[in-house]
Design a protein around this nucleic acid. Sequence first.
DNA 1: GCTGTAATGCGTAGACCATACGCAGAACTA
DNA 2: TAGTTCTGCGTATGGTCTACGCATTACAGC
Lengths: 254, 254
Amino acid sequence: MAAKTDDDGGPVLPPAIESAWGLRERPPKGPRPGLSVPTIVDAAVRVADADGLTAVSMSRVAKELGAATMALYRYVGSKDELLMLMVDTGYGPSPGPAEPEDHWRAGLTRWAWAEHEVLRRRSWLLQVPISGPPVTPLQLGWLEDGLRCLDGTTLGEGEKMSVLLLITGYVRNEATLASQIAEGSRAAGVEPSEMMPAYGRLVARLIDPARFPALHRVLSAGVLYQDDDPDDEFAFGLDRILDGVEALIQRRAG
Amino acid sequence: MAAKTDDDGGPVLPPAIESAWGLRERPPKGPRPGLSVPTIVDAAVRVADADGLTAVSMSRVAKELGAATMALYRYVGSKDELLMLMVDTGYGPSPGPAEPEDHWRAGLTRWAWAEHEVLRRRSWLLQVPISGPPVTPLQLGWLEDGLRCLDGTTLGEGEKMSVLLLITGYVRNEATLASQIAEGSRAAGVEPSEMMPAYGRLVARLIDPARFPALHRVLSAGVLYQDDDPDDEFAFGLDRILDGVEALIQRRAG
DNA sequence: GCTGTAATGCGTAGACCATACGCAGAACTA
DNA sequence: TAGTTCTGCGTATGGTCTACGCATTACAGC
């Protein structure tokens, strides 16, 4: 029998996650805890919001709480565990299920924009190295609400999951790109609106039009020089994906 | 005038990247260099291939080369710069442009599968915190070949870029998921084929069917318990995206 | 009320990490 | 041959996570 599995054969959850599901009560012995897992996670989120994920170290979070570094390890098994919990509360609760009368497309659009909005506000969420499929309560809440959007459709359960995976992946990807541009412009001391034009000029300087004809054509068309509305960009890709989903639903229906 | 921009107003490239474009020759004075940027990058890639990205430290790479840690800093400005170069050689050259007679869809499918294959072999590429749009020669080569697939279509240049972004994002996302499952199964000492079923059992244990009805339905359908071919999963999402692109091309054409 | 037990807070210390700085020596130019 | 400039790299600083052990606290049972 392999280690790290419980009696059911399921993977074992870190204690702090189990307590997030309310599956673990505190033993009544010993001194009253001066901290708590939510307090610690909130402090860590505050640090990340203020100074980015790289500023989140155990000592920094402890300082935020007026506690000693090692005190945190009484509540959290490791930094990775803390990060997992930070993701949960960083996303926050799902915006709620779609209205029953909503078209699936309207529901999923709202769902995608909600995640987009969260990631815009807390771009450090994208830098957390996610270590597996979601197991925290709020994360599964997002999944649940996404699934409900597809409730009335002809898709199979597996297809619904695939569609949500596709969309959430797209949202994360677009947000990653946007935050990189923002970060790059801050690092280079350039106005964010000047970032893409500057990138265009850089690529134009580097490439040989004979070796990179298609790319050269893109540059000549001025695509990179103009500073598009990122929201338009996001909406474009999302509509392409939803068009693809719609095609599948039509096929399953007819 | 802001710092970190050159006379053209373009962002300044790190020296090691400029040399990758052949824009910088060595001054003829001083002792012969015992190392070179490509040698160092190759060693770093070897370390990452063998022991993962976390094993890539300056001292470990130096040891791989039989050099002192600080010797590397004569060639590479920082570890981040080394990582950027590792990504370039880690991806390697693009598989080549599509055949001119190929349909755009066949070309993009091949392009996406090629990236998929690279990321399957070198999953550490996904963990490198990418810090901006591509500026290295091989990276732009991939972009070029992707653009050529869309050469004969009715799409605008900006739309072509968006489509490629969409696809590459999808590929990275799917690969990230797959590598997380592989990593998780290794960490828990479970057979990779048992990973998704174990996850399904875990979620089933956690959720309350009343609070998570849609998710419960997915579990009841046994979706998570069966161990699908990951390639089928990948092909499914890719086809959905390409369907969406096809819809757009049709609309632009007609 | 006393004692045993178990949990908490946290100080110390070890094993890493990136990298700033400075110096000795090598290889070229003049 | 002298001067310059670049290389290799040793040392040192300040940061990271976390294993371990100890004193303190608070409850359970007697």
